[in-house]
Design a protein around this nucleic acid. Sequence first.
DNA 1: CTGAAAGCGCTAACAA
DNA 2: TTGTTAGCGCTTTCAG
Lengths: 337, 337
Amino acid sequence: MTENGKRTATIKDVAAAAGVSVATVSRVLANKGFVRPELRLRVLEAAQSLSYQPNQAARSLRARTSNTIALLVSDIRNPFFTALSRAVEDACYAQGMSVFLGNTDEDPRRERMYLDLISAERVAGLIYSPTREAAEAFGESHPDIPTVIVDRVVSGVDLDSVVIDNAGAAYQLTTHLLENGYRRIAGVFGAASTTGQARYAGYMQALREHGITHAAQWATFANPRIEDGRTAAAKLLDLPEPPDAIIGSNSLLTAGALMAIRERGLTIPAQVALAGFDDDTWTTLVEPPITVICQPTYEIGSTAAELLLQRLADPTRSTRQVMLKAQLVARASTAPR
Amino acid sequence: MTENGKRTATIKDVAAAAGVSVATVSRVLANKGFVRPELRLRVLEAAQSLSYQPNQAARSLRARTSNTIALLVSDIRNPFFTALSRAVEDACYAQGMSVFLGNTDEDPRRERMYLDLISAERVAGLIYSPTREAAEAFGESHPDIPTVIVDRVVSGVDLDSVVIDNAGAAYQLTTHLLENGYRRIAGVFGAASTTGQARYAGYMQALREHGITHAAQWATFANPRIEDGRTAAAKLLDLPEPPDAIIGSNSLLTAGALMAIRERGLTIPAQVALAGFDDDTWTTLVEPPITVICQPTYEIGSTAAELLLQRLADPTRSTRQVMLKAQLVARASTAPR
DNA sequence: CTGAAAGCGCTAACAA
DNA sequence: TTGTTAGCGCTTTCAG
C-alpha cells in the first residue's frame, strides 16, 4: 500500500529503493558509523534519484532542537539592522542553518509573541536586540535557549553579547562638536532602547565636562523612525533658543533631523550642525556630507553569529562580552565655526 | 520516572497536570470538538502554569507542513527588498506565522541551496524573487510548494505573482527625459534579473519611438550594488561622447551613479541628468532631489503575502498575476534643459 | 557492519 | 464528551 503518488520521498522510500534498512540510510546520510562502500553508494544513488530531502521537522523532533536560529530586531528597515541581518544570514548560510526574522517595532507585546513563537519552534539559538522593557525584566520569561544580545545592554544576566561603546562614542561625538565651537548641542535619542540611553549618557557627560549647563529641552527622545526624528528635530529648531547643533542617535533620526533642517531653509553647518550614528550611504551623498559615528555593522552581525554558533557547539563555554570599536568620521556637517 | 528536570513541558505534562488525556489537551488548545468547560479550564490553567509551548516540530511532522513561509530575495540590503520583507513579515505576524529569510546574491548556487533547505524544512509557502537562471529554467527543480513570484517575471509557469510594469515604467521614465530635452540617455540596468531586462526593453523602446539612434555602449548592465553602479557610471561618463542623462535601474545603481557624477564634479542636471527606480529616502535628501519611478514596495510585499496566505487557505484557487502601478516622481535632477 | 524497533510530541481516527 | 492509540519521518540504541 505504498501508493507513493506525488509525496516527497521519505527515508523509507530511499531504504526500499536501495534495498537496505532505514537505519543504514540514516547512517550514510549522517556519515556516522561505518557502512560498506557498496551499500553507501546504493543509498546515495537512491537518494539522488528520488531527490530525497530529509524532513527537518522529523529531525528537529528527534533532536529536540532545530537547524534554525532566530534574529529578533526592532525594525529591519533600520539600516543598522539591515546590515546586521545580512551578516547573520551569511554566517548561517555557511553552516547550512536557516534564519527566522522578526521585527518587534520596540513593542513589548509583539516581542513577547515572537519569543513564544521562538520557543515553540525550538530554534537552536537567538540573536536578539531586546526592547528596553525586555532588557529590564530579562530572565522573567526569556526562552531557555542560547542567546546573543546585540546592540543593546541587558544587565544582571550572564549572556554573550556584542555591542559598541555607545556612551563613549556619543561622548566622542559630542566632544568633537564642542571642540569645533558648538555650544547649544541638542540630541534626538532612541526612546525605546538601552542604546539610546547610553548615548544620551555619553552626550550628557561630555557637556558636563565642558561645563555646559544643559537646557533640558535639548535632549529629546523619539522612536527610531524618520518621521519621528523629523518631528523631534522640528520642535528643537522651533525653540525660542534653538540649538546650534543636533545629534541623531541613529541614521533614521538623523535623516529626519536633516529633513527638518532643510524645511526651515537652514544651512549646515553655518546655522546648525548635524551629526549622527551609522555611516549609511546617504550620509556622504548629501551636501554637506554628515559627520557620523561609524559602527562596524556587518562585523557586529558576524561576530554575534560566530558567538552563537560557537556556543551551540559548546554550551558550557564561558560567555563573552565583545565590545567593538566605533569610529568618528568627521565631515563637513560639523566643520569648526 | 517523569524526572521532569528542566525540560520544557510537553502535552503529556499538561495532560497529567490537568488530570485529562493528551487528546483533550490537544482539543482545547486547538479549539476543536467540544470539551466540558470545567476540563477546558483545568487544561488552560495547567498549560499556563507549566508555560507550555506546543512543539512546532512535532506539529509540522504530523501536519506535513509547517507554520513558516520563506522569503528568498537577492539581497535584503537592497532597499526594495528591505521594504518588501517588512511587509511580508507584518502580514505573517498577523497570522502567527514565521518567516525564513534567504539572500541569494543572484547566485544560482546559493539559490539552489536555499531551495533545498526550503523543501527540507517543509515550509508552507515561498515568496520568491528568482535569479534569471532560475526564472528561465523554472520547474526543473522548483520545490513543490505554493509560491508567489515577486518583482521578477517567470514565463511558462502558472504561478501567483506581484510585479510592476517594469518595461512601461522605464519607458515612461525615458520618455520623461526625452521630453525634457535629453538625448544621450544612458542606462545602468540590473544584470542578473528579468527586471533589469524589462527595464532595458522599455528604455530602448522609448528611444526608438523618438527616433534616437542609440549608441550601444550607453546601455550597460551591472550587479545591484553601489560599487558596481559607480563603476558602470564612471565608464559611461568617461566615454569620448558621454551621456547627458543616466538612468539607474534600482536605488543602489542610482546611488552609485550619483557618486561617479560627484567624483567628476559634474553638476546635475546641467551637465548630466540622473534618474532611477525606487523612492528611497536619500533621493530627496540629496541636492538636487532625484527623479524616480516610485514603486509601491510595501504594497508589493503585502500583496504577495496576501496571495500566498490565500493560496494556503485554498490551494485550488486560480492563480493571479497582480500588476501594481508605479509612479513617476519628477524632481529637479531631470529638469528641462 | 546491518537491521529491528523504540520513541521525539503531536493530532486525529476510532472506541468507549 | 473523553480516552486510547496509531502513526508523521527520523535517529539511535540494542541485537544479531
